[in-house]
């Protein structure tokens, strides 16, 4: 297990490097001189010269990548073109907001998905199964930004129960004043993981129920509750893996929902960066989110391995 962990972490290093290379290239695929992508048009000649030298923009690409990487590992993602603030500073607060939204949505989706998927698998072929499967197909087919609008129309515009914008006043806190802002975006964002987890858990449960050992367990006289415990423990590694990955996807994919609800997270940052063609912000945000995703992947892999006794000792 320790060996496996080390090997798995070592394997993540080249991936992380390659991911940062892709992010580095974002500046270079932007049309025009890279300097125009990272500095505002009205930047003074000294600034231009300084940055050009600092990032080695007159040197070959590999050197530039090295210099850029040196900045990045120190937490320096450059400055925003639009407001000249440090990208890193804005990222911290935005990423924490996105994290709140994404974890809430992923947990919600996980719970819904496990319940529906479990029921569907256990009662395969019945009405419950068909309803759960329809929900799952709907969940993965619905454009969630549209669903967000529909929820706003119902719960904010028509009923007036919940706010439709922002994350509430001031800093985030887990009180009703703030949580009520979280409800609609979290529900909106949860439909995708809910649908996917439902599908996966259903498949896993069907597979487990068809295995020989289920007959053995019934043959021992175990009641339904105990059988459920066995099914759950067998299904847990897969379900958790899907859930972990979904969290990663939601962290990186919340941009549309954050746009709909004006949720001040990384998605909003990206959205504004796109509007203002603020490439440093785009690049920094992408890099951080992608790194979180790589780390989550690694974590999920390790947890899954640890949970399965068959893999633990290899």
């Amino acid at each position: 297990m320790l060996l496996y962990t080390l090997r798995r972490i070592l394997y993540a290093v080249p991936i992380a490097l390659a991911v940062s290379l892709v992010c580095f290239m974002l500046v270079h695929i932007a049309p025009g001189d890279p300097i125009d992508a990272i500095l505002p048009p009205d930047a003074s000649a000294e600034t231009v010269a300084l940055v050009r030298k600092d990032y080695g923009l007159d040197k070959p690409l590999p050197v530039q990548f090295g210099l850029w990487l040196a900045h990045v590992v120190q937490g320096d993602f450059g400055r925003s073109i639009a407001n000249r603030r440090l990208v890193a500073d804005e990222l911290v607060s935005a990423a924490s907001k996105t994290f709140i939204l994404a974890t809430t949505a992923a947990s919600l989706g996980f719970v819904i998905g496990c319940i529906l998927g479990g029921l569907a698998g256990a009662f395969r072929g019945t009405l419950i199964d068909r309803a759960a499967v329809s929900f799952a197909v709907g969940g993965v087919s619905v454009p969630h930004y549209w669903l967000g609008m529909v929820l706003v129309i119902i719960f904010s515009v028509t009923l007036g129960w919940l706010p439709s914008m922002s994350a509430g006043p001031g800093d985030w806190a887990w009180d009703w004043l703030h949580i009520r802002h979280l409800i609609l975006p979290a529900i909106t964002l949860s439909v995708i993981p809910a649908g996917l987890v439902t599908r996966t858990v259903r498949g896993v449960v069907v597979e487990i129920l068809s295995q020989d050992f289920m007959t053995t367990l019934r043959g021992k006289g175990l009641r339904r509750l105990m059988l459920t415990v066995h099914v759950m423990k067998n299904a847990a590694p897969t379900a958790l893996a899907v859930m972990g990955l979904q969290l990663g996807y939601l962290m990186g994919g919340s941009i549309l929902v954050e746009t709909v609800f004006a949720w001040p997270g990384t998605g909003m940052m990206l959205n504004q960066a796109i509007f203002q063609r603020d490439i440093p912000v785009l690049q920094g945000t992408t890099l951080v989110l992608a790194m979180i995703f790589v780390a989550l992947n690694l974590l999920v892999d390790l947890i899954q391995t640890a949970l399965d006794p068959r893999m633990r000792r290899t």
């Binding site: 020989d212 050992f213 053995t216 021992k220 067998n234 068959r310």
Partner: peptide, 16 residues
């Protein structure tokens, strides 16, 4: 009454 199955590989729950 209880039963012994043919396949000891698959008749036991792998995670218990």
């Amino acid at each position: 009454v209880s039963m012994i199955f043919q396949e000891p590989m698959t008749a036991l729950d792998p995670v218990f």
